[in-house]
């Protein structure tokens, strides 16, 4: 009896410890970034362009560049992901093709982000001759986050109980009507959640965009699709390379803090959207 209680309490404390460890990492990370970064943050830092390779001036073009790429990524990936999820859930009935589709989606998810970067460089920049372009960067990021969106949307479309499909079909509705009026409203919830998770990941990615979409200095807000932008993660990379200069290092912390805040914003808004949809 006693030993059972002991085992119980050992187990309970062990899982509690893992939780504390996990939360501790997060608190330590956020704490450091805020502590080091807030010294760099000022209104000028957020609204002025970069000077002296980042050691002076602000990061306004990095912020707008990242946001522009991310929004475009969302617009490209969202409909494709929703379509794929619906096709996988509602039209692929044969177990073999279902397996094949899943394998494809998981393989796409497993591709390291640097491979996307190299692919973009070879296919778009070299073969298609687009040059370094923020739009190509958005396309590549959209490919990269596609599996996250597809899986999230698929799970929510597929979890709609089949009685809803049958009830709608039994009322003489066509498959398209059933999908658009019954399944999409339910599936869109998961797709948006997936989108915000995917975007939170994509905005921090450096490897896929550093060769194909961004330039480190002398960049303005783009006026065409085929111009480079500056982005937050690649800016942090270039500042880190000048770490011997204390001013550059401080700006690297400041830029990191802005990036982390943006990621947190996307994640929490994802949560809020989800809660609103659940209430409806």
């Amino acid at each position: 009896m006693n030993s059972r209680k002991t085992i119980n309490s050992i187990f309970k404390n062990a899982v509690r410890l893992s939780f504390i460890f996990c939360a501790g990492i997060l608190v330590f990370l956020f704490g450091t970034i805020i502590w080091k970064g807030s010294a760099a943050i000022s209104l000028d830092f957020l609204t002025k362009p970069t000077e002296n390779f980042g050691a002076a001036g602000g990061i306004v073009h990095q912020i707008t560049g990242s946001l522009l790429m991310i929004l475009t990524t969302a617009i490209i990936s969202f409909p494709i992901a929703l379509g794929t999820a619906i096709y996988r859930s509602e039209y692929l009935k044969n177990p073999r093709s279902q397996n094949m589709a899943d394998t494809l989606i998981f393989s796409l998810n497993g591709i390291p982000s640097i491979i996307f970067g190299i692919f973009g460089l070879i296919f778009f920049v070299n073969i298609l001759g687009t040059g370094v372009s923020w739009f190509v960067g958005s396309i590549i990021l959209a490919m990269m986050i596609l599996p996250t969106l597809v899986l999230s949307a698929y799970q929510s479309v597929n979890s709609v109980p089949s009685i809803y499909r049958e009830s709608a079909l039994a009322l003489g509705m066509t498959k398209w009507k059933v999908i658009s009026t019954v399944l999409l409203p339910k599936g869109i919830n998961g797709a948006i959640t997936g989108l915000l998770i995917g975007i939170a990941r994509a905005i921090g990615e450096t490897a896929p965009i550093m060769f194909i979409a961004t330039a480190f200095s002398g960049v303005q807000f783009p006026t065409t699709l085929l111009q480079p932008v500056s982005a937050l993660p690649t800016h942090i990379l270039s500042l880190a390379q000048q770490a011997t200069n204390p001013a550059a290092l401080q700006n690297a912390w400041g830029t990191s803090m802005v990036l982390v805040i943006l990621v947190v914003l996307f994640s929490t808004s994802g949560l809020l959207v989800r809660l609103r949809f659940q209430k409806k």
């Binding site: 109980p161 009685i163 809803y164 049958e166 009830s167 709608a168 079909l169 039994a170 009322l171 003489g172 509705m173 066509t174 019954v182």
Partner: peptide
């Protein structure tokens, strides 16, 4: 679809939208 408009069905478990 139009066959099902003529032959309606009610299921075991009620399913309201």
């Amino acid at each position: 679809a139009s066959l099902r408009k003529n032959i309606g069905m009610v299921f075991q478990k009620p399913c309201v939208f």
